[in-house]
Design a protein around this nucleic acid. Structure first.
Lengths: 177, 177
DNA sequence: TAAGATTGACAAATCAATCTTT
DNA sequence: AAAGATTGATTTGTCAATCTTA
């Protein structure tokens, strides 16, 4: 170890790198960062969402339904997109429906399934929550201190990873290890 | 909208950017990516950890204790580091202790608190789980397809954000909104 | 008083089982 | 059978209250 003053995070990664030389630390380190920062962001956004009487999971759902599509999104597709169980969705949808933010609509030609749409109030709250995220989230503050280059590259690279994970999860649905 | 075939993710961000022009989409987009990828990684690592009879939260705890320090880490400090409640820690520690992976040790000069250390078995399982993460995680596969430049920049930038979030959370503990 | 840790009440996730429709 | 959705049992998280020690 040198005498450079490492942060706790860097020190931890350096420790593991030296400990298990067989490890692919160059991929483990960014995954660890993403996992941890993702968790901290989730906790932080949950705190902001609670101002609206919602959880971050609620906003995630409303925000996804918010994005207009040709075909209104079905509950099953939503479970894939959000990477949660259908059971969890079922309960969340019922609660948001009772809160007057969401409505179920029939799908032509399939009486098993239903599609989802936001009410006027749901639309307003979803937008307000997203605006509050953009304004108040801790991570937004941290992102504001990055160089323009870094912010652009981060967005591009994370977008690539986001797409790749979406595809892998979708592909891995039928046969899961 | 142009005729470029956008991914769902990019289409969603473009939608919000056009919808609410006041939004700082340049910071909202990367935050959204980090939140979503972080969640998908957590689900994936949880699946891998279950091979060892552990949750990702268990491995997170063991891995953090694993990192050697001058002073063995206390339970309260661990709650800050992991960004979970003391109550959750309390229960998880008891379970890991009963499983024979973790031991509580006395702290000289303070009979309220205790420190944590891994047993030989805990050490072995923690390392095995981390090795399994590096080998089998979906995100590791996705990271393997990045250009070397991108991987390096991602690691550096996410490390910066990780540190920044750690500091903000630590600073925000006494007075939380 | 405050800090470290634990407990109890409650919220929310998963998994397995079930019901209806295809 | 298989797919979409729901329910019940279990696990695990947070929050508020409590106990012990500083």
């Amino acid at each position: 170890m040198g005498d450079t003053p490492l942060s706790d995070v860097e020190a931890g990664m350096a420790f593991y790198g030296g400990l298990l030389p067989g490890l692919d630390i160059h991929k483990l380190a960014p995954m660890w960062h993403i996992f941890n920062v993702g968790h901290m962001v989730a906790v932080d956004l949950d705190r902001i969402a609670s101002r609206f009487g919602l959880s971050i999971a609620d906003v995630h759902l409303l925000g996804t339904v918010r994005i207009e599509r040709e075909e209104p999104i079905r509950a099953t597709d939503l479970a894939s997109t959000l990477d949660v169980s259908q059971a969890a969705l079922s309960i969340r949808i019922r609660r948001l429906e009772r809160a007057g933010l969401l409505i179920k609509t029939m799908i032509a030609g399939d009486r098993r399934a239903f599609a989802l749409a936001l009410t006027a109030q749901g639309l307003q709250i979803a937008d307000a929550a997203v605006a509050a995220f953009a304004r108040d989230a801790k991570l937004v503050r941290a992102l504001g201190r990055l160089a323009d280059d870094d912010l652009g590259n981060l967005t591009r690279i994370m977008g690539t990873l986001h797409d790749a994970m979406d595809r892998m999860i979708l592909a891995g649905k039928p046969d899961d290890t």
